[in-house]
């Protein structure tokens, strides 16, 4: 949170028309109905997640203002939430956001090497996006999968027990297919079952 600051350019309103499809609006209505009357602000995080997903993977001032209108709250209430949570991206990201865990248990099991290898392989630094807009690389804090360290998350999928060969395979698959593939099952889960 501390290292993510609103860049000035984000304040410039682009005045682009933002709108959701009827389906999305219905989905948002359902989310709002989960909270008591008058507490529609509770739906802010879920609605921002929907907005981010629908509007190309990241948020900007236009989309945040639109969300504020939907929930009948002021734009600043949306900005303060969007800047607080690390999963809201305020700058454009690639189709696949690769988030490599950098915290303790992953770090001692090679998480840092995984990050360096990805930087070399994708020819970008942490925080950057490849030229073809396919991959964004981010270092994140604990993903809650320490038992299968080192791990990374690509969009919503977890990839665990990583090594160089696995990363080569994952990147190749993501480059060649249009859909995110389900990762293989975890060995510690099998062991316990």
């Amino acid at each position: 949170m501390s290292d993510k600051q609103f860049k000035h350019k984000l304040y410039v309103k682009k005045n682009k028309e933002v709108s959701f499809t009827a389906d999305t609006l219905a989905k948002i209505e359902t989310v709002i109905s989960h909270y008591p009357e008058g507490q529609q602000k509770s739906a802010l995080i879920p609605v921002l997640q929907i907005a981010q997903e629908e509007l190309g993977g990241s948020l900007n001032v236009d989309s945040m203002d639109y969300v504020a209108g939907l929930l009948h709250i002021t734009p600043i209430e949306v900005y303060e939430v969007a800047t607080f949570y690390s999963q809201f991206y305020l700058e454009p990201v690639g189709k696949y956001v690769i988030e490599v865990c950098q915290t303790g248990p992953c770090a001692i099991c090679g998480g840092e090497d995984i990050m360096h290898y990805l930087e070399e392989k994708l020819h970008i630094k942490v925080g950057e996006t490849t030229e073809d807009n396919l991959f964004s690389l981010k270092g994140v804090e604990c993903l809650g999968a320490c038992g299968s360290a080192p791990v990374m998350q690509v969009n919503t999928e977890f990839y665990e027990f990583l090594n160089i060969e696995k990363i080569d395979e994952i990147i190749a698959t993501l480059r060649n297919t249009s859909e995110l593939t389900k990762p293989e099952s975890l060995s510690w889960k099998e062991r316990l079952s």
Partner: peptide, 25 residues
């Protein structure tokens, strides 16, 4: 089910409630 958006602090119960109300944690 309410999904958060990446903040360790929201594991603290009152921060979690703030977050559930659609605010910063």
């Amino acid at each position: 089910v309410h999904c958060g958006a990446g903040a360790y602090i929201c594991g603290e119960e009152t921060a979690l409630l703030e977050s559930l109300e659609g605010k910063r944690g």
